[in-house]
Amino acid sequence: MNRVESRTPRFVVLGAALGVLFLGLPILGLMKRVAWSSLWSQLTDAATLEALRISLYASVCATAIALVLGLPLAWVLARMQLKTRRIIRALILLPMVLPPVVGGVALLGAYGKSNGLLGGVLGDFFGIQLTYSLWGVVIAEAFVALPFLVLALEGGLRAIDTKYEESAAVMGAGDYSRFRLVVLPLLRPSLAAGLLLAWARALGEFGATITFAGNIQGRTQTTPLAVYSMLESNPEGAYALSFLLVAVCVGVLIGLRDRWISGGTQ
C-alpha cells in the first residue's frame, strides 16, 4: 500500500463516526432505560420466563427446519447449472427483503386454517393447526431465517475447491461419503456462521410471527412479542428483555467474527 492509499480522508472518518453514532445511540438509549437494580427480577418474572422458553424452543426448531431445507437449496444454487437458478435464488431471498408482516400474511395464505392453500388439508386430514399455535411460531421464524442460512452455505460451498471431492472420489468415497467426510468438514465454518445468523434472526422475529401465530401469552408470545406487549404495561420489563436480546445478538456477532463478511471461508 502506498502513502496516498493509506491516508484516509477526513470526511470519510467523519462519516464513519456519524454512522457509529447513528447505530450506537439507540443501544445507549436502551441501556440508559434499563433498571439495573431490578433487572434480574424482571428477567425471572413468570411471564418473561415463559416468553423466553417459547422463544428458545421455537428458534431452535426453526433453525433445524432451516438447516434441513437450506442445505439442499444452497447445494442446488452453488453446484447445479439450472436455468431457473436466478428465480430460485430470488424466491429464497424474498423473506429477507419482504416486510415481515407481509410474510405473515403470505403464510396465512398458505397455511391459514380456513382459506390457506394447505391449511384446510392439514386440519382436515392430520388435525394440525399452524395458525395461533407454537408450530405457527416455528414456521414463521423458519420462513424468515432460511435465507440467512442458505446465503452462508451457498458462499461456503462455492469456496470449496472441487479437487478435494475429486481426490476423495478416486480414493473410493461415494456421494454420501464425500459429503460426510470431505464437504461437511470444509463447510463447517460457513455452517456455524449460517446457523448462528439464522438462529439470531429467528429469535428476533416479530412481524411474521404476530401476523401468523398471534401474540398469545404462554402459547405463541415470544420474547420480542413480550417486549411489545410490556411496553405500555411494564416498561421496565420491556427494557430488561430488550437488553437481553441485544446481549444475545452481540454474543452472536462476536461468535461470528469475520466469517459472514469474508464469505464464510475463515
Partner: peptide, 19 residues
C-alpha cells in the same frame, strides 16, 4: 465412476485434506 475404479492417484496439485 471414479470411486469404483480402485485407483491410487497423486494429483499435480496434491490435494491433502487440510482438516
Amino acid at each position: 465412476k471414479p470411486e469404483s475404479r480402485h485407483i491410487g492417484m497423486v494429483f499435480q496439485v496434491h490435494s491433502l485434506f487440510p482438516f
